[in-house]
Design a protein around this nucleic acid. Sequence first.
DNA 1: GCGACAG
DNA 2: ATCTTGTCGC
Length: 234
Amino acid sequence: MNPLPFPVPKDLAEAARIQKEMRERVIVAGDPVPVRYVAGLDASHPTRFSRQQGLSVAVAVLWDRQEQRVVEVAQAVLDAEKLFPYVPGFLSFREAPSYLAAVARLSRPPELLLVDGQGIAHPRGLGIAAHLGVHLDLPAIGVAKSLLYGKPQGQLPAEAGSAIPLLDRWGQPMGYIYRSRTGVQPLYVSPGHRVGLVESLEFVRSLPTKVRLPEPLRIAHIEAGKARRRSAEG
DNA sequence: GCGACAG
DNA sequence: ATCTTGTCGC
């Protein structure tokens, strides 16, 4: 089963047009509570500058919620720099193609994508999690480590598990700022596709979190870094 | 025109 | 995102 081709725009204007079109197909509703197999997606890139030039590595970690463990790790090596530059608000055009390749290499399709980046908490409502979700027609949730767009509603408490809404330009909630553990920087959680607003937060809360990131993403991050350095040598 | 700005 | 060991602090 080959995924549909992922269009890479020639410039930012075309990219924005694609985002606006695809945003209309996003469904912010659905409850992933029964989902068993989750794909945690993260990528590692070489520094433009320093000694090793290397390539980028994207990793898909297949997480079994029932057994609470990783059951498979798939990766894709790619030259992200040649695809598209990193421009805030347009991350998916740089990273999504490699995620699609990694997901395609899993022995079974995941039931939900957990992506390192925004869902609909995005200037045009289509962060990378939403983009991937719509492209693959899979439930998806975005978990970012910093803010791209939006205003917090109130002050986030210090307690683990606390969350406050993240508001769009019209004051409507599009996600949450979420403190997964006490004493750590918060996460930015928003629905990507086929998941409700509240449900996106509840799902992330249901995942084991030993440190800051939920396990599927923490492990994907580690695996991506290891794989990239590994492929940057022998 | 001035900030803000996922990875 | 990445360059990087030890070290400060709860």
